[in-house]
Write a protein that binds this DNA or RNA. Sequence first.
DNA 1: CAAATACTTGACAAAATTGTATATTTTATT
DNA 2: AATAAAATATACAATTTTGTCAAGTATTTG
Lengths: 173, 173
Amino acid sequence: MKITASEEYGVRCILQIAREPSGYLTIPQIAKREALTTAYVAKLVHLLLKGGLLQSTRGKNGGYRLARPADQISILSVLDALATPIFSKEFCNRFTGTACTCKHDNDCSIRALWIAIDLVVRHAFSETMLTNLFCTERQMQRWNQIHITHEASDSRVALPGFPSGLSGNEIDG
Amino acid sequence: MKITASEEYGVRCILQIAREPSGYLTIPQIAKREALTTAYVAKLVHLLLKGGLLQSTRGKNGGYRLARPADQISILSVLDALATPIFSKEFCNRFTGTACTCKHDNDCSIRALWIAIDLVVRHAFSETMLTNLFCTERQMQRWNQIHITHEASDSRVALPGFPSGLSGNEIDG
DNA sequence: CAAATACTTGACAAAATTGTATATTTTATT
DNA sequence: AATAAAATATACAATTTTGTCAAGTATTTG
């Protein structure tokens, strides 16, 4: 499982704009701050623009700003603008092996697994806003230790007890 | 965020072995059932072998079997054998932009975000065993509807309230 | 011990992703 | 109007991932 390059760099770009006091940045400014080329930043912010997260002004003195306040922009919406989610309509078409259509097309428990984890991830990111990244890494880590690992060991952040094949008859499909 | 090809196909291969009544399958057999080439299956099962999830027997009448009972093999261990996790040691080295070292190397709230989601995902997969995939997709879906979306709307499967930059002083980093 | 079967390994070809280059359009300033 | 600064668009080069090929090693069976 991988974070794609556009997701990583795209989040960095919009976070630069979000944290900028003036609320306004040009492509060359972002490029300099993130050590990226202007061409690449242009591509990324364009994705964010199409996704409705940024507004642009053309011409001299132009630039980009957030389309809404940072506390109303979820990480989920940012990632959705930058790449396709873990599970999308195209997924099963991507993995057909040597056949022209996937062997498990009409009944695939693995597909249900990916859909489940996608749901978990999407929910997590839907609750995290750009403003939540306005802090130091130490603060974030501390939060992680307190909440995530705690919740995790409480088995609340899990997919516990997927229907077992051995005792799966309880569920009427 | 993407599931890699080796993760997808690798899970399919080990699931074939796990579901096989004899508990024993050869590379050509797996290849046929999954519509993959024998060369590709060989590569994938070898990763699973190195990861300690399979045992192999060479020579005529050889093949692969699970190294332990299917209910003791987590999806997490399978995925770890097949690919690197969402966040690993190499991560920051992959995204350095045009610089030779990442601009945010010593303080990066985004990194903490990826580490957090990685933890959530790993925990979820650590609780899901191969046997939990021994069912129909409908059964899985039904389970998803009951548990996942429910827990999600209960805000228990989330990263709620990451430290905010506005009111983040409460946390002593 | 030879033949058949099956795993092992490393190199390489194809495809997808990632990143760059170039040209165009828009707009403020002089 | 001319110029400079900035966004937009498209095509293309580089890299990484994905999948294949081919030559090897090991083991069982007759």
